[in-house]
Design a protein around this nucleic acid. Structure first.
Length: 271
DNA sequence: AGGGCTACCTGTACGC
DNA sequence: TGCGTACAGGTAGCCC
């Protein structure tokens, strides 16, 4: 669920817990995507929260020693709460020294929280990760080079975190619609102009979504349990018609739902 | 090596 | 109403 703009919104809304110290840790559910280290309490106790950053869809909380690496999976929520209510999907409760709680809630348990002390850049999650699409590293030369080594379709390519960090199903669908590119197009068939346009539309859509606090389809919320508004601007995701009244088709591509408008996103011969 | 499929888990929507 | 099925924004690990 949470893609780059949603994770970005979460880390921004977490800024108020910077400089807090961890006073208690309660593990309720051990088995998330990866088992929570049962020693987590001892590892976190009395550590101070320094800066909080995002890399791709991962949240990295810098502690006075080590890091908490968090992924929200499809339904994960990191919440700052005043009281801890009984919620059957709350799996971890961290008590802070400002009388607030940082809780992890995740219906499907596809997310995870791990503690890590090594060189964060060299962690398996990040070592091969692609560029951040909102930086200058995401540019024509970079994509051109990545494409030259790829036999993927453009939809697979954009979803591949080793190419670009942070894009998910919804944003890729919306980007390709804005570019008029069919999702099954092989990347080798893209023109230079296509590549330039993909870069522009990626940045445009991500920035707009961050401005609107991300997309909330069902579960996504920021750290204050607030919904985003970008879903109101979707052109085709989950729709039957685009804003121009064109028919939107839904297909299954590599096991994922893919929406596109055949009239505007044509598949070139030989693709 | 690299691509495709499935599993992980729970909730929801829909068809009968 | 109720049951069964399909599907959901992500990732990794299997098999070929």
């Amino acid at each position: 669920m949470p893609e780059l703009p949603e994770v970005e919104t979460v880390i921004r809304s977490l800024s108020s817990i910077q400089n807090c110290t961890i006073k208690n840790v309660k593990i309720i559910t051990e088995q998330l995507r990866y088992k929570i280290n049962l020693d987590l309490k001892n590892l976190l106790l009395d550590k101070k929260i320094n800066n909080i950053e995002r890399r791709g869809k991962y949240i990295i909380i810098h502690l006075s020693k080590g890091y908490l690496i968090i992924h929200l999976g499809m339904t994960g929520k990191l919440l700052i709460e005043d009281t801890v209510e009984n919620n059957k999907h709350t799996h971890l409760i961290i008590t802070l020294d400002n009388n607030k709680y940082l809780t992890y809630n995740d219906i499907r348990k596809f997310g995870f929280i791990i503690y890590y002390e090594g060189d964060i850049k060299k962690h398996d999650f990040f070592i091969n990760m692609g560029v951040e699409p909102l930086t200058d590293h995401y540019n024509f030369n970079y994509l051109k080079k990545k494409i030259s080594n790829s036999s993927q379709t453009i939809k697979q390519f954009l979803l591949d975190q080793n190419n670009i960090a942070g894009l998910g199903n919804i944003y890729v669908i919306e980007i390709l619609y804005n570019c008029g590119i069919h999702p099954l197009t092989k990347v080798q068939a893209l023109t230079d102009q296509n590549i330039e346009q993909i870069i522009l539309e990626t940045k445009k859509i991500l920035l707009l979504s961050i401005q609107l606090g991300g997309s909330s389809i069902s579960d996504y919320r920021d750290a204050f349990n607030k919904k985003g508004k970008f879903q109101d601007t979707f052109n085709i995701y989950g729709k039957k018609l685009d804003p121009l009244g064109n028919e939107v088709i839904k297909i299954k591509q590599n096991g994922r739902g893919t929406y596109y408008v055949p009239k505007l996103q044509t598949l070139k011969i030989g693709d």
